[in-house]
Simulated assay, not measured.
Amino acid sequence: MTENPATAVTPPSPAERPLAEVVIYDGHCNFCRAQIKRLQWWDCQGKLAYLSLHDPEVGRRWPDLPQERLLDEMCLVDRQGHRHWGPEAFRYLTRRLRRLWWAMPLMHLPGVMLLAKPVYRWISRNRYLIAGRTDCDSGSCSLHR
């Protein structure tokens, strides 16, 4: 069943949570949006804000973020301005979000990133095939097909 965009709950933005760390994700991707919904549940303390990489605010706030990399990996910008990409962002979140405590020991095992990075890259390359895409007119939806 497809979610009706009119009834979809928009994740909190940096304007709504100015002190939050910011997750930048592909808002045109159904798979990514589903993961953001899951992340919102894990973020029961409201530590995160969210922006689609297609939002002009991303370019205004972080002009140095490479668009090509944003299309390949989610990025988390922490309160100190450090950038955490893809599986390393998830590893970082296991230390920050109370509901992810169970994943922290696993994500910090020696060598786990040797497996996590290629798995993340495969999912990223195939995410539109896995879950479809939203309707968009910018042409970005076809980039990973």
Score class of each variant (00 low, 15 high):
residue 86 G to R: 08
residue 119 V to Y: 06
residue 108 H to L: 09
residue 50 Y to W: 03
residue 14 P to G: 03
residue 102 W to F: 14
residue 83 R to T: 15
residue 50 Y to M: 06
residue 121 R to V: 07
residue 89 A to Q: 04
residue 128 Y to E: 07
residue 42 W to S: 11
residue 73 E to H: 12
residue 45 Q to H: 10
residue 103 A to V: 06
residue 74 M to P: 00
residue 56 P to W: 01
residue 110 P to N: 10
residue 119 V to F: 09
residue 81 G to N: 14
residue 120 Y to L: 12
residue 17 R to L: 11
residue 1 M to I: 08
residue 21 E to K: 13
residue 103 A to L: 09
residue 89 A to R: 05
residue 132 G to Y: 03
residue 20 A to M: 07
residue 109 L to W: 11
residue 92 Y to N: 08
residue 60 R to P: 11
residue 118 P to T: 06
residue 127 R to K: 06
residue 129 L to C: 04
residue 122 W to Q: 02
residue 135 D to A: 10
residue 65 L to R: 07
residue 2 T to P: 14
residue 73 E to C: 07
residue 38 R to Q: 14
residue 89 A to C: 06
residue 16 E to V: 00
residue 11 P to N: 05
residue 144 H to R: 14
residue 105 P to L: 04
residue 95 R to Q: 11
residue 104 M to D: 01
residue 119 V to P: 08
residue 117 K to N: 07
residue 102 W to P: 01
residue 112 V to S: 15
residue 27 G to L: 09
residue 108 H to E: 13
residue 121 R to E: 06
residue 39 L to Q: 03
residue 76 L to K: 11
residue 56 P to M: 02
residue 66 P to W: 00
residue 63 P to L: 07
residue 135 D to S: 07
residue 12 P to D: 13
residue 77 V to N: 13
residue 131 A to R: 14
residue 109 L to F: 03
residue 45 Q to M: 04
residue 46 G to D: 05
residue 117 K to H: 09
residue 81 G to Y: 08
residue 54 H to N: 12
residue 64 D to C: 02
residue 19 L to G: 10
residue 21 E to H: 05
residue 94 T to E: 01
residue 32 C to R: 06
residue 55 D to P: 05
residue 140 S to Y: 06
residue 110 P to H: 02
residue 144 H to K: 10
residue 69 R to E: 14
residue 59 G to W: 02
residue 12 P to A: 15
residue 37 K to F: 02
residue 14 P to H: 03
residue 129 L to K: 14
residue 57 E to S: 05
residue 12 P to G: 05
residue 133 R to V: 12
residue 13 S to K: 10
residue 27 G to F: 04
residue 1 M to T: 12
residue 117 K to R: 15
residue 135 D to T: 01
residue 132 G to N: 05
residue 106 L to F: 14
residue 134 T to Y: 11
residue 77 V to D: 12
residue 75 C to Q: 12
residue 129 L to H: 12
residue 75 C to D: 12
residue 71 L to W: 01
residue 7 T to A: 09
residue 38 R to T: 04
residue 37 K to S: 14
